[in-house]
Nucleic acid binder design. Structure first.
Lengths: 217, 217
DNA sequence: CAATCCCTTAGGGATTCCGCCGAATTCCAA
DNA sequence: TTGGAATTCGGCGGAATCCCTAAGGGATTG
């Protein structure tokens, strides 16, 4: 039985490269490609691949949120995060979102195969540099103090989703029709985001999104 | 006779993807790969490929310098620049360094083939967004093709002034009172900026301002 | 000198967004 | 099972933005 893999990256070139690398391994098959987070979720749910290789920076829905949804809607699909930067908070974040692997794009040629091998057997995999980073953050998952700064300021998944769409330039109306919700709901989410994050204009929101690599400038 | 192509990018994944894309065209052959600028220069000089596809961000020697050296040491090799960002000054810079083509990674799947086709016949190629960008920079006298589309799209001083204020998060009203003009005037300037720069939302304007260091994120 | 172009200025009307209120449903964890 | 958080939706009035049109001044050019 072949290992079926989903590849999600917004650059066609990178997808082609990942496909070439992965399919050089016999018995491995890239069963689908996605160019944004929503497409990744949709195809993961529909095709239930063994492994989903997900880039962080993607339009419409970023890799972290996509991971969260994939893990929820297709629990047997292991998610391997592929990213440019090795930020400690990012490793933390994607692991909490349910990813089982984390590989830097620079190390992809060296680590990608072994990472997918691990994940295919439901073993977590962190590329060396990522695990160094992870070891520096406070471990102990499940601690009640994990959301110490939560309460009023922490955005909900839905809010983060909408934050990205807003930062990408969508209006309330567009967000609403895109997500299939009422304009009023979109407005409410937007207002809550602005309130929680203490933004006073949409441009502050964009700069925040750029700084935090939710979108790229 | 096959078209021989050199591919230089520091990510193995991207190189694999480029190879897959390029070699899907019959008669085209990726004769070498390089993972940094020095290696690219060395292999270009030794193998004299028809076209060199060069990434901007590479270790040891960046794409711009690599281009300069390749054009000097192997004049028959046409250089196609491949990059993430469409910074206006960058287009200018690489063209002066001797590149004949400029393609954004986002557009690679669409434009790469036709770009290489052009370059292989010694015709310059700019991807659509890049040429838009190029048309907006102040034309340098003597640079061929610098002013083929300028004028219409370049911002006036007043517009640049207002662009910054908008990017900083000011509303039309605030811009107006800050500059001592009518709100209506501010609105007109804003509309003209959006039109000239082909922005479709204020967030695009902010990202442009961040990229071009008009504001910082 | 008149014609023309560009920059800057501006208004009217329609549309959309925003802030501030309330409220129903679902979901998850205590 | 229950309480709280998350997500959903609506009204209403004022604010902001968008679309279209256009006038005045200065520089350039025929």
């Amino acid at each position: 039985m072949p290992v079926r893999i989903l590849v999600a990256d917004d650059h066609h070139v990178v997808r082609a490269g990942l496909r070439a690398l992965l399919e050089s391994k016999s018995g491995w098959q890239v069963c689908a490609e996605a160019s944004n987070g929503r497409e990744a979720v949709e195809k993961a749910v529909r095709l239930k691949p063994h492994v989903a290789v997900i880039d962080i920076a993607m339009p419409l829905l970023n890799g972290v949120e996509a991971t969260r949804q994939i893990r929820k809607l297709s629990p047997n699909t292991e998610v391997l995060i592929l990213t440019m930067h090795d930020s400690e908070t990012l490793v933390q974040e994607v692991m909490e979102a349910g990813a089982s692997g984390y590989v830097l794009k620079d190390d992809a040629d060296r680590d990608l195969i072994s990472a997918v091998e691990s994940l295919q057997q439901h073993q977590p995999y962190l590329s060396s540099r990522a695990s160094e980073a992870a070891s520096r953050v406070s471990p102990v998952p499940g601690t009640p103090g994990a959301d110490y700064r939560s309460g009023r300021n922490r955005l909900t998944p839905r809010e983060r989703e909408i934050l990205q769409l807003l930062a990408e330039g969508k209006s309330n109306k567009e967000v609403a029709s895109f997500l299939g919700i009422s304009v009023k709901t979109a407005e409410t989410h937007r207002a809550n985001i602005m309130l929680k994050m203490d933004f006073h204009s949409i441009t502050e929101l964009v700069r925040y999104a750029v700084r935090n690599k939710i979108i790229q400038s």
